[in-house]
Design a protein around this nucleic acid. Structure first.
Lengths: 336, 336
DNA sequence: GTGAAAGCGCTAACAC
DNA sequence: GTGTTAGCGCTTTCAC
């Protein structure tokens, strides 16, 4: 163990330069040399030290994905999409979770600053627009799933406004008029989705009621809390549009506990299309975010930025298509 | 961007050696020097290049966790436990997913061979015992959750045999006699759990029936397949003991679809205690694997191995405590 | 308390 | 087609 390129050179009776050439399969090496180098590599169990290589080459071919929370299969699906594109192109993808904590996120970002990785994809961030804009000048970063208002940084998201607009329309098409929205206060995605929800109601001639809009967070319990809030109203909604599947599932559980049959007495819809949606009884209607497509697109653009060093960077905002999926948790309303 | 230690030295009017000393807060630096270095660092926006540092120091203080699949919150919980211990001790934790593919796993392991990371924790592996034993000689590796028969490698797991023994006994205590086992063919953990299941039945004077043992894989659909298999029997079981929560949930869905009420007509129990267990209706009885404890212990021992370079390595197998958790998906049997 | 210089393992320019 | 060598950015020994 611990053999270096020098050891290989000695073993093969060649110079380190030639060994390096063979290792990097550059042209201008004789078959004879290749053979001897490969034999030496095998014999010594040599593996190139990437610290040396990367230091010299000023790049690592490693990309870091920072997730707000790791206990959410949705994010990992995006990572899978990222990997599927990046690996065949010579990039390793690693991930880390910030627990939505600024302190940890900064710490992860250090891997970018200290050259451990070539680029970072953030599936949500605590950074503000100003900081992101500054960072984007010097480093290759990208946002995915969750944009930041005013950040001129490579961003790939679904059109949240339009997606929730479509979801709300699907409920209206079923006959629902009393549709409530379960949102998370702060996130851009949540705000956009709320806008889409409002626009759908307005365009279809249904008034937007303040008491039908709940603002909590992405934490699980807020689904149940929202449900309880709505049920206390004089005229409770017949459908709940939730800003995430987890919130929808939380609300579904609360509703069932309260004796309602979801998908008959009340309709509840999520967002994301996590795998749990199909595992639940009833299965959960939702808006699909195309994780693989999100991941692939963002990493493709990021790699383009990394390799096009020098020329101007692509800081655009891209959107990928969503899809409303109706399952067992939604149905026409019993009452008007 | 891209300032080096040299630039800082020049800016501060000191040598690179002194700058390095300040940066690493070593003794023997005057307050004056510190002040000037820090000012220069701030002014230049300097961040040390870890490739240089790590190359020189021959370590990276980065640990890699390889998961068989990333779309499984259970693994990420362990990663959280690992992080919680490692970060305050100066180690960064990154993770990658092998999709249970040998090829990808080898590729991830390259980060160990090429010195990108100091150690690897595998939450399941495709490697055989021999390979692992060889690797463990030269590198710092550890297994967590899923051991490998015959591998003398640092391993931290729950006592699977005993855990499933306890789970089976819990069902027997409820009055069940016709208890079936839903296992995954290959994995050591599954085999151990089957042994525990058998021992419980035997010790309580209940015969082990071959047709009550299903061998599939950890893939979701096998829960449903197992359920269907058992229901075709002349004397179907009254309880299913599944080797994972996901399999249990799959079986629960199949049972409900077949018109059974789980937690009354049939009892179904999982393993792991993933967060979904509490979100399901009915909530899922299971055996808790203490993820945080697993992660903390394995990384503690691994770091000890890494830092005790030279002296002999700890290749022991440690177990951490499990806990049977009874919820809505299990109940006394209706019939004998 | 500080500086000069060697060297970690590697690649690539240059010379032959 | 191959070898020599400089140097990537850093830490650390050794002198002073």
């Amino acid at each position: 163990m611990g053999a270096t390129i020098k050891d290989v050179a000695k073993e093969a009776g060649l110079s380190v330069a030639t060994v390096s050439r063979v290792l990097n399969s550059s042209a201008n090496v004789s078959g004879e040399a290749s053979k001897r180098v490969n034999a030496a590599v095998r014999k010594l169990g040599y593996s190139p030290n990437y610290l040396g290589r990367n230091l010299r080459c000023r790049r690592t071919n490693v990309l870091l994905v920072i997730m707000p929370t790791s206990e959410h299969s949705f994010y990992m699906k995006i990572v899978s999409g990222i990997q599927r594109y990046a690996q065949p192109r010579g990039y390793d993808v690693i991930c880390a979770s910030s627990n939505s904590t600024s302190e940890i996120e900064v710490r992860q970002m250090n891997m970018l600053f200290n050259r451990t990785v070539d680029g970072v994809i953030m599936l949500g961030t605590q950074y503000g627009a100003d900081t992101l804009n500054t960072l984007a000048k010097d480093y290759d970063i990208a946002l995915c799933c969750e944009g930041v208002e005013g950040a001129n940084v490579l961003t790939v998201v679904v059109d949240d406004e339009r997606a929730e607009f479509d979801a709300a329309n699907a409920l209206i098409d079923m006959g629902h008029k009393r549709i409530a929205f379960v949102g998370a206060n702060d996130a851009v995605s949540s705000v956009q989705r709320r806008n889409g929800y409002k626009r759908a109601l307005t365009e279809r001639g249904i008034g937007v009621r303040g008491e039908y809009i709940y603002s909590g967070s992405f934490e699980y319990e807020h689904g149940a809390l929202a449900f309880e809030h709505f049920m206390k109203l004089e005229e409770p909604p017949t459908a709940l549009l939730c800003v995430s599947d987890l919130l929808a599932i939380s609300a579904i559980n609360a509703a069932e506990k309260a004796g309602l049959k979801v998908g008959r007495d009340i309709s509840i819809m999520g967002f994301d299309n996590i795998s749990m949606c199909e595992m639940m009884i009833p299965s959960v209607s939702t808006v699909e975010q195309p994780c693989a497509a999100l991941g692939e697109l963002v990493v493709r653009k990021l790699i383009a930025n990394i390799t096009s060093s020098g020329s101007v960077k692509d800081n655009s905002r891209y959107t990928v298509g969503h899809k409303v999926i109706l399952r067992g948790s939604t149905a026409p309303p019993l009452t008007d």
